[in-house]
Structures are given as structure tokens and as C-alpha cells.
């Protein structure tokens, strides 16, 4: 299973690298990363938002989808195989889907604003920005809830603590750390 997850992570990384290269080779408008404010020094403005997204908006959208997938896959890799229960995969899927929804609302909300020039407001911010400010935080909090709430189920069970105590006792009886090595076990290769 670890081999599959690691392979998926590597694929996501390659995907992000390829997208970055594609974006890098796309001709950038003058305001791609902001231009100087006409009247105020040391301040940038974004200018024409639609022009900035016209050629690379889709690529950037996919880049962040891969980044969110990368994050969830890394969390999954960190959990030992015997704890990756269907419920755990359900939680990871929930984290991923919530992040995707937040990202989709933010990105397409911004596109809608660019098309119409109008936006609703939520707790002090334009709708798309509110998805960023509150939504991204909220999606991360779910990940933390899984870690803290599911600590004994997914991270460190009481039997894990006993296994580690046993490992410590055995290590302390050895005079030297064992660097002689052995082939890694199949399960986590």
C-alpha cells in the first residue's frame, strides 16, 4: 500500500512540476505579478484580473487541486498501514473534498466577480475572499480534528505505545545502535 501511495505522491509532484513549467513558458501579461500603483509608492495593484487568468487560470486551478491531493496523500502515508481503515480513508476523502469545494468556490467566485463586477460580502470580505479567509482555515481544522479526535485510532494507539516501550527496552540492552541493517519490510517499501 505504501508503494502505491508513494507512487501517487510522486505522480502529483511530477504533475505540479510539469504545470509550473508550462506556466513558466506561457507569455505573461505585464500585470501577471502586479504592477506599481499609479499614485502610491511601494504599493502594487493587480489591474486586469481577467487578463491574468486568461492563459494560465486553468493550469493554476489544476496545480492547486494536485497540491491539495498531495497534502492528503502525505497524511495518509504517515499513518501506519494497519490503521488505514475505511473510516480513516473516509475522513481523508472528506478533508480532500472540503478543500476542493473551498478552492472551487473561491476560484469560480472570483471568475464570476471578474465577469459581473459584483460581489456579495461575508464577515468583512468579498465572497470569494471570504472562502479563502474562512474556508481554507476551516478545511485545515478538519484535518486537525481527525488528528486529535482520532489520535488513538489513527496516530498512536495504546498498543503502539506498548510496542514502542518494548522497542526502547530492547534498544537500551544493545550496547551499540544497530546500523548493520536489514532489507526493508515489504509493507512500507
Amino acid at each position: 500500500m505504501d508503494r502505491l501511495i508513494a507512487g501517487m505522491i510522486f505522480t502529483a509532484v511530477l504533475g505540479m512540476a510539469a504545470i509550473l513549467l508550462l506556466i513558466g513558458f506561457t507569455e505573461a501579461p505585464q500585470n501577471a505579478a502586479g504592477v506599481a500603483h499609479g499614485e502610491i509608492p511601494a504599493m502594487l495593484i493587480g489591474g486586469d484580473g481577467a487578463a491574468r487568468l486568461a492563459d494560465i487560470g486553468g493550469l493554476a486551478f489544476v496545480f492547486n487541486c494536485l497540491l491539495l491531493l498531495f497534502t492528503v496523500l502525505l497524511c495518509t502515508l504517515s499513518v501506519s498501514p494497519d490503521k488505514r481503515t475505511p473510516v480513516f480513508f473516509g475522513w481523508m476523502t472528506a478533508v480532500f473534498v472540503t478543500n476542493l469545494i473551498v478552492w472551487q468556490q473561491m476560484y469560480f467566485g472570483h471568475l464570476a466577480f471578474l465577469a459581473s463586477g459584483e460581489t456579495g460580502w461575508f464577515l468583512g470580505f468579498p465572497a470569494a475572499t471570504a472562502w479563502q479567509v474562512y474556508g481554507v482555515w476551516f478545511a485545515g481544522v478538519i484535518l486537525i480534528a481527525v488528528y486529535s479526535g482520532g489520535f488513538r485510532s489513527y496516530i498512536l494507539s495504546e498498543s503502539d505505545e506498548r510496542r514502542f516501550e518494548r522497542l526502547l527496552r530492547e534498544a537500551r540492552t544493545d550496547a551499540e545502535p544497530d546500523f548493520s541493517g536489514e532489507r526493508i519490510s515489504e509493507s512500507r517499501r
Partner: peptide, 15 residues
């Protein structure tokens, strides 16, 4: 400047 207040700010989506 509307971009400055929207999710990608003045520095743009890639930044």
C-alpha cells in the same frame, strides 16, 4: 483596485 481585495491579491494567482 479590485484584484487587491480578491483571493489572489495584487501579486496574482501563481505568487
Amino acid at each position: 483596485d479590485s484584484e487587491s481585495m480578491m483571493p489572489f491579491g495584487a501579486a496574482g494567482i501563481i505568487t
